[in-house]
Each structure stands twice: as structure tokens, then as C-alpha cells.
Amino acid sequence: MPGVSQKEDHILLEGCLNNDRGIQKKLFEKYFAKMFRICLSYSGDRAEAKDILQEAFIKVFTGLDKFDSRGSLEGWIRRIVTNTAIDYFRQRKRLVYTATFPDEPEDDGNSGFLFQELNQDIILDYVRQLPDGARVIFNLFALDGLSHREIGKKLNISEGTSKSQYKRARGLLQKWLCEHEQDRQ
């Protein structure tokens, strides 16, 4: 029930704005799992994901007064998490968009395997192996639903670069997972 959730969010918000540490923890716990997954997807590394999440939630708590309560709190936190992740890589100068990948795959548009059957850590390991720039673009497109034009604007790259990086990241991930599946069989 979105109405109940929104009301609950408002109670949490008021408490957070009054610097009530208990309420802040409640808000954190409510959104932790969802946000942590996003961080994991952007980074592929649990320790790094925790760092990003921590940074993001500090921004959430210190910037809650800027949240327009008419909007969705989850959406607002999610945007902060995403932007914090991008900033995290940007600050470490890791957002490099390589023109070619070591073993560029063919994208047939068919995954040919089931994600659910694979070990989570193995998938995460492959996600982590993706170049940072390509991984961020893949997440922005596949996970956050941004268009290539929006991604280009956000990351200061051309639309074409965004498209090619996304395709290559997806293809590479697909290839690695297929190979893993074949080896396993």
C-alpha cells in the first residue's frame, strides 16, 4: 500500500530531520537491502558497495531537508545512491571508456542461460571484472532505465559511446556467463 508507506516515510522523515538517531536507523534499515543491491551492481564488490552506500546515506541524512515530500522517498534515495556510485568512480578516475575490449563478444541478444541457476558470487565476480566505465553505463541503462542520451549527458560522453559501451558490457557479461555455464556442465 503506497499510502501507508508514504505516511510511514513521513514519520521517518520528521524524525530524521530532528536528528533522531533511532529513526535514522529505521529509515536506513528500510532501504538498506534495495540500495545495497544497487551499489553491488555498480561496483561488483561488496566492500566497495558498502563504502558507496555509507557515503550515499550520509548524503541522504544531511540532505533530507531538500527532499520534496511530494515525491517518492525511495526514488530520491535511489538517485542519491546512483549518483554517489558514479561520483565514487569519477573521483578515483576509474570512469574510462575503452574503445575495444580484450575479447569482444558477438551480441546475439539471447542469454542462453538462467541467472537464477548461477552462484550469486560468481555473477558478481563477472560484474566486477567489467571495465568500470562500461559497468556504470550498463547499470544506468539496464537497471536505472536511463536513455543513452541521458547517460551521455550525465557522464559527459556521446550517445554513441554510451550505446557501444552498453552493448559491449552486456555482450561480455553474457559471454563470460555462458562460458561458465558450459564449463560447469
Binding site: F36, R37, L40, R46, L114, Q116, Q120, A142
Partner: peptide, 19 residues
């Protein structure tokens, strides 16, 4: 895209450590 969809579904079910 089917791959993207599957990836999203997988991510939603991804287990996370204690907060």
C-alpha cells in the same frame, strides 16, 4: 532486453549481508 530483464530479476533476489 531479455538479458537486462533477467539481470534485474536476479539482482532483486540477491542476498545481502546484515545491515
Amino acid at each position: 532486453n531479455a538479458f537486462d530483464r533477467e539481470y534485474r530479476e536476479w539482482l532483486q533476489k540477491l542476498e545481502v549481508n546484515k545491515a
